[in-house]
């Protein structure tokens, strides 16, 4: 029977103990998560939230202190459970003595791909990531973006059912980021489950269907992106707003964010928006723009970080 979930964790936990002092650091705490097969799932959290430790536990790079992880119904500790997984680690260090082709060949062989199949697929995947002309060049000559794309090819070459990407666009310029996003978008409809670990909220929002947010090793929020960002409102941008008007705007229900050349006021209803506009104009301020807005994933994330749950 096919598993419904690509990833299932049940109360998974990791506690690091310092060798001499015996001090404990709880990197991940009692985390239970289900990632549906074929979904695009984003794991968010600030630095040190335990995202990478969680991913490493999924892949048996780190042994959980408690709980268990299951991949497609198989215990993650079983090497066979990792056969349908493609992984691109954060801060990877590919052997620099290999060429792009050699690197793909090596990792594909470790993934169990036969030599004849590797020979066929390597040019295809070099092409997919735009490195056809670089296959024979040693990877120490590659830029960060090229390494990241090659890493992606390495994660994809054995046609995994689950793709685990740890900060896939970290340190990559906007063009490279776009290219990576295009490759990932190309997986839509193929049934591949994509699990992205990132702190780039806009990317996760644009790509993922589901997110989970970690804070200090604990799961503080989980759900569909479309539900979490559904909260709508009106955003008013204005300049020359005197400080005396800000208190009145707050009283009217506006949330004020300073901008380099003025302020942005977020309100929930149209009535509030009209009242805020009136208050700004009465104080001599200039309205620059008025736009309907939805709550961004960033808003959801910040609230989750502040309160420990979604607002």
């Amino acid at each position: 029977m096919a598993a419904d979930y690509a990833i299932q964790t049940d109360g998974i936990e990791k506690i690091y103990r310092s060798r001499f002092r015996g001090r404990e650091i709880r990197a991940v705490s009692n985390l239970s998560l289900n990632v549906p097969v074929g979904s695009k799932f984003g794991l968010l959290g600030p630095n040190g939230a335990g995202k990478t430790t969680f991913v490493k536990m999924l892949l048996s790079v780190v042994t959980p202190t408690a709980g268990r992880a299951v991949l497609f119904g198989k215990d993650a500790r079983d090497p066979e459970a990792r056969r349908p997984v493609g992984y691109l680690p954060e801060n990877h260090r590919f052997p620099t003595y290999l060429t792009g082709r050699g690197m793909l060949d090596f990792y594909a062989a470790l993934s169990g791909l036969a030599a004849s199949e590797r020979k066929k697929r390597i040019p295809e995947y070099l092409e997919l990531v735009g490195l056809s002309n670089w296959g024979e060049i040693r990877i120490k000559k590659y830029s960060k973006g090229m390494l990241q794309r090659l890493g992606l090819a390495q994660a994809l070459i054995h046609k995994p059912k689950l793709l685990v990407l740890d900060e896939p666009t970290d340190g990559v310029d906007p063009v490279g980021r776009r290219e990576i996003r295009d490759i990932l978008n190309g997986l839509t409809g193929t049934g591949v489950t994509v699990f992205i670990n990132s702190h780039l909220l806009s990317e996760v929002e644009a790509f993922c269907q589901y997110v989970a947010i970690l804070r200090q090793g604990e799961l503080v929020l989980e759900g569909k992106v479309s539900s979490l960002v559904a909260e709508r409102g009106v955003r008013v941008r204005a300049t020359d707003v005197p400080d005396t008007a800000l208190a009145e705007i707050r009283r009217l229900g506006g949330t004020i964010s300073p901008l380099p050349d003025g302020v942005q006021v977020q309100v929930v209803t149209r009535q509030e928006a009209n009242a805020v506009i009136d208050a700004i104009r009465a104080a001599g301020g200039m309205i620059e723009s008025v736009a309907a807005s939805s709550s961004s994933l960033e808003d959801v994330f910040i609230r989750a970080m502040e309160t420990g749950k979604a607002a």
């Binding site: 892949l59 992984y87 680690p89 990792y107 470790l110």
Partner: peptide
């Protein structure tokens, strides 16, 4: 780090 984690992720 970064090399061993990828190796260990293989079957």
């Amino acid at each position: 780090a970064g090399r061993i984690s990828l190796l260990l992720s293989k079957p």
